[in-house]
């Protein structure tokens, strides 16, 4: 019984949140890794692109709600998602045409591209704050829980209640579906294969007659779709605040590099590695140990080794360790 209680406790506070947060990071990391693989630079504007996409979804959610449209038990944001994605794609392509294309034609170095993307990051950052403001926005509606702690306790008689929020399930299902479609696209379709070919060997891709402009266009479209979905899922699960999205750039970059930069499958797993590390290392294990120990302890120690305020430090530490000892990442990406 105590063992089960410990397991439920861990699921509740570590496993389920990690899978959810990991899914959100994974989608973002795949977007970053695709841009790196095809356009060959680390896009620092990605966190704010996610914020922009989420903002668009929120605005459309409000619009739909003002018309009295909703999805019942599902969040209205899911209905607004396609509109948000469309706007985000337009913005991405706008920045590509007006800014990135210029530097591409000049054959600028990757460092120049990174600085350029920083500039776009500031612009997007400001645009989002001007339109929707810097404050916390909760746009989740529909039913909150799939399994609530009280129901679970009543049903099982355990001391610990398992809570599964509907946003967690929505996140996991949406991520699975998105990744399934994306990996099928990359591995099965001619265009997807040509994207992988271009990422692997640009010169030979050109010699094979692959059109770089089309590849770049599709990359921006996919990256924008992923950014909007990842941002919206994160916002539904927690809340929307532009600064948080900017902060999420660090775990997303860490996930990208852990998985091997330029490798979409690596980025997918990298997201979960980072999420599990962040959450498992900042969790207070006192109660968990209490269930497992044969004797009772009156210790006031929470057995939490790192404060949750430091969760970004964990991403950063993983990033540094990977770059020093295994720069190509777990799944053999490009070495930067």
């Amino acid at each position: 019984m105590d063992f089960l209680n410990a397991l439920i406790l861990l699921s509740n506070f570590v496993i389920v949140p990690s899978i959810t947060y990991g899914s959100q990071l994974a989608l973002g990391a795949i977007g970053v890794t695709l841009i790196y693989g095809i356009l060959r630079f680390a896009n620092f504007a990605y966190g704010d692109l996610m914020a922009f996409g989420t903002m668009c979804v929120i605005l459309f959610t409000w619009l739909l709600k003002s018309w009295g449209v909703n999805l019942g038990i599902f969040p209205t944001a899911l209905l607004a998602l396609p509109f948000g994605i469309t706007l985000t794609i337009i913005v991405s392509l706008f920045f590509d045409k007006t800014v990135f294309e210029y530097y591409r034609n000049k054959k600028s170095s990757p460092v120049t591209f990174i600085v350029v993307s920083l500039g776009i990051m500031f612009v997007l950052n400001a645009v989002v704050r001007i339109i929707i403001g810097p404050n916390d926005i909760v746009f989740m509606d529909g039913s909150r829980f799939i399994i609530s702690a009280v129901d679970f306790k009543e049903a099982t008689g355990l001391l610990e209640g398992l809570t599964i929020k509907s946003t967690q399930v929505i996140t996991i299902i949406t991520t699975s579906l998105t990744c399934f479609l994306l990996f099928n696209f990359l591995n099965k379709t001619k265009t997807g294969k040509s994207m992988r070919a271009y990422s692997n060997n640009e010169d030979l891709a050109l010699l094979s007659g692959i059109d770089p402009n089309k590849i770049i266009l599709i990359t921006w479209i996919i990256a924008s779709i992923l950014a909007t979905i990842a941002g919206t899922l994160y916002g539904l699960d927690k809340s929307f605040k532009p600064f948080t999205y900017f902060n999420n750039l660090l775990p997303i970059f860490a996930a990208t590099i852990v998985g091997g930069i330029g490798n979409p499958l690596g980025a997918f797993y990298g997201g979960f590695v980072i999420a599990f590390s962040e959450i498992a290392l900042t969790y207070a294990y006192k109660k968990f140990i209490f269930y497992l120990l044969p004797f009772s302890s009156d210790s006031t120690n929470l057995i939490q080794y790192i404060s949750t305020d430091y969760k970004f430090a964990i991403s950063f530490a993983i990033l540094v360790v990977v770059l020093i000892f295994k720069p190509q990442g777990i799944f053999k990406g490009k070495v930067i």
């Binding site: 001619k190 294969k193 040509s194 992988r196 070919a197 990422s199 692997n200 060997n201 030979l204 891709a205 094979s208 692959i210």
Partner: peptide, 13 residues
């Protein structure tokens, strides 16, 4: 060659 693509995919490209 495209090292990260299969032989078949290399030919398709």
């Amino acid at each position: 060659i495209f090292t990260e693509l299969t032989v078949n995919e290399n030919l398709e490209m």
